[in-house]
């Protein structure tokens, strides 16, 4: 079975619900116990697809404007990004556009982008039309989902599932060197239903996971994309 390890970064303005989105997602995994010490800022999970397993490392970022300048540190070497905005806030949607530009200019390798409109339960206060968002997402080659961290588990699952699937596709295309994939025989796909995230015990033990990044990719290697310069 193919196993892919990928780093996914969650970006978005402050207050759009990045954390609650993540918490909601982890909450499903950690339904028995949510350890407050782990926090929602960093976690790893496994997503099982039909013929592969995707190990996701989810990096949450601080959304405050003053930490905006630190973002490059976070999304460096990321393979996927969740761009979260608040459907009740136009500004947050505009910020997404900024993020996309920044990612495109600073990340040399192909990334899986997912635009997530959060707080879909606040339909009454909607300020960003879903068609507009979907259009934007399509323009940058991203998927668009609307979720509600409050009520909608399905949407959130879908976001991660889609991302995992896209990552799998990306790894098949061999375009990206930083995406580590290897074959593993120890996984029985029947046991874990497709699309279910399973808790990575490494998160608890603090074990460090080591996907084999090539040294070239770390240092913004020579793979040149036309987005930068």
């Amino acid at each position: 079975m193919k196993v892919i390890e990928a780093k996914i970064v969650v970006l978005g303005s402050q207050g759009v619900g990045k954390t609650s989105l993540v918490v909601r997602y982890i909450g499903k995994m950690f339904s028995k116990h949510i350890s407050p010490t782990i926090g929602a800022s960093f976690f790893t999970c496994n997503i099982n697809l039909e013929n592969a397993r995707v190990k996701l490392q989810v990096w949450d970022t601080a959304g405050q404007e003053r930490f905006r300048s630190m973002a490059p540190m976070y999304y460096r070497n990321a393979n996927a990004a969740l761009l979260v905005f608040d459907i009740t806030s136009v500004n947050s949607f505009a910020a997404i556009k900024g993020w996309v530009k920044e990612l495109q200019s600073n990340v040399p390798e192909a990334m899986v982008l997912s635009v997530v409109g959060n707080k879909s339960d606040l339909e009454d206060l909607r300020a960003v039309q879903s068609s507009e968002a979907a259009q934007f997402a399509a323009s940058i080659g991203a998927q668009y989902c609307e979720t509600s961290a409050l009520h909608d588990q399905q949407g959130i699952d879908q976001v991660f599932l889609n991302t995992a699937a896209a990552l799998l596709k990306l790894s098949n295309s061999n375009l990206v060197s930083s995406l580590r994939s290897y074959d593993s025989a120890d996984v029985d796909p029947d046991k874990i239903p497709t699309g279910t995230p399973t808790e990575e015990d490494a998160t608890h033990t603090g074990k460090v996971e080591l996907p084999a990044w090539s040294i070239d990719s770390i240092a913004h290697g020579h793979v040149q994309k036309n987005m930068c310069c």
Binding site: Q14, K18, T19, V22, V23, I26, I34, S35, P36, I38, G39, A40, S41, W59, D60, T61, A62, G63, Q64, F67, M70
Partner: peptide, 11 residues
Amino acid sequence: AAPASADDLLP
């Protein structure tokens, strides 16, 4: 705040 997010962690 539990679970703490990056918004809390960094400051």
